[in-house]
Write a protein that binds this DNA or RNA. Structure first.
Length: 125
DNA sequence: AGGATGACCGGAC
DNA sequence: GGTCCGGCCATCC
C-alpha cells in the first residue's frame, strides 16, 4: 500500500460513493478508478474489512458477471436485491443485473477527476 | 518467508 | 446466454 497517498481503502470508499443512483459498478472498474488496475480483489476485501465507517452503497457493487456476491454481508439474503429494485434496477431470479443496461459508464473525465482528487489529498496531507 | 484465501477479471470454449 | 480456468495482488496464518 502507498503510504504517501490516500489509503487505497479510502479511495475505494470515495469511488463507491460516487456511483450514480440506479447504476451498478464492478470491482475491477472501481479498482481502475482508484488508480490501481488489477486490484479488484482488494476492492472486495476493502468493502468487507475496512469500510465500516463509510456510508457505502454496497448494493451497487457487483462482479463482472452481474452477480451480487456480497449478499452475505447484508443483514439478510435478498436485501441487496431489494435495494437495487428500489432504485429501478432490474434483478433476475438468481440475483443478477443486466450489465448492458445498468452498468455505470464512467467517462475519462470521471477517472481524471478522481485521480486529481486523490493526488490533491496527498499533497494537502 | 512461503502458502492459503478472497464480495474478482477477462479470455477461452 | 453459460461455465471453466489461469492470472491477479494485498492480507492472513
Amino acid at each position: 500500500m502507498d503510504k504517501s497517498a490516500m489509503d487505497f481503502y479510502d479511495r475505494v470508499a470515495v469511488v463507491c460513493m460516487a456511483i450514480p443512483y440506479g447504476r451498478v459498478a464492478s470491482y475491477g472498474q472501481i479498482a481502475l478508478l482508484c488508480g490501481a488496475p488489477g486490484h479488484a480483489r482488494q476492492v472486495g476485501f476493502a468493502l468487507s474489512h475496512r469500510l465500516d465507517g463509510y456510508a457505502i452503497p454496497a448494493h451497487r457493487i457487483v462482479n463482472h458477471k452481474g452477480c451480487m456476491s456480497g449478499s452475505a454481508a447484508f443483514d439478510y439474503p435478498g436485501l441487496q436485491k431489494q435495494l437495487l429494485l428500489s432504485e429501478g434496477v432490474e434483478v433476475s431470479e438468481d440475483g443478477r443485473v443486466d450489465m448492458k443496461k445498468y452498468a455505470w459508464r464512467h467517462t475519462l473525465e470521471d477517472a481524471l477527476r478522481f485521480r486529481r482528487q486523490f493526488q490533491g489529498e496527498c499533497e494537502e496531507a
